Simulated scan of single mutants.
Amino acid sequence: MIEAIIFDFGDVFIDLNKQAIDTEFRKLGLTAWHDDLDALNKKYEIGKIDELEFIQGFQKHLPNADLAEIRAAWNSILGDFPLYRLEFLQMIASKYRLFLLSNTDNTHIEKFEHKEGQTFARDFYSCFEKVYFSYEIGIRKPDENAFKYVINNHNLNPKKTLFVDDKKENTDMAEKLGFQVWNLQPGIDDVVELFDKKLI
């Protein structure tokens, strides 16, 4: 019997356009995604550096790009957030304890709130008992401490909690910790199919 659901954000509720971010950075002159950019991204996602340091890290590889261009390219990954997904969330919010646990950064969240509008963002956040962004809590999935942080803060029983995420390394860790899991496949699955999948 599922009592609580922990959702990921990107590619679960908001669509991510990975092709767009690749295209936009290539336009700025980035020919390959370097290891140090991956490390930079992870540091930004756990709040160890601020936006300026993050963008300046990109400038080392893109000396001709300004801060605004790099920020725009970084945000190009954010796609649509269909209204029907919000309506689905609102429908189940009274039946389950809902939580959001997302690996993300301040730049993307600010862009999401600006793009969709404060009212939409507020309606979305209000569906959850608590929203956890990695850059605010200083831990990112699949670190088991990210899951334990939510469990301990809300006294959740993993066996009665469903974890929904598009990344297999994240659902694998959650499963190891005793959660029920759904490794949602973007472009194939849609979060609104939760009942059809007999997951809850």
Rank of each mutant, 00 (worst) to 15 (best):
V164F: 09
K198P: 00
K115C: 07
D105G: 15
L98G: 08
E129V: 12
F88S: 00
I14K: 07
V150N: 00
K48F: 12
L162Y: 01
N145K: 15
G178R: 08
N106K: 14
I137Q: 01
K141F: 00
Q185A: 11
W182I: 06
A32L: 13
I46V: 14
D190N: 14
Y44T: 00
G187H: 09
R71L: 13
F9I: 01
K167T: 11
A72K: 12
D189K: 11
D166H: 06
Y135T: 07
I14G: 04
G79Y: 08
A174G: 06
M173F: 02
T161L: 04
K176M: 06
D80K: 10
E53G: 14
N170I: 01
I200L: 15
I151A: 01
N183G: 08
L30A: 02
I137D: 00
R26L: 07
L101T: 03
I92E: 05
I46L: 10
T171C: 04
L67T: 15
L199N: 02
F112G: 00
L83D: 12
L30D: 06
M173Q: 13
D35R: 05
V164L: 11
F163K: 05
Y44V: 00
N17R: 15
K42I: 06
L78Q: 10
F128C: 07
D11E: 15
Y135A: 05
E116W: 12
N17Y: 09
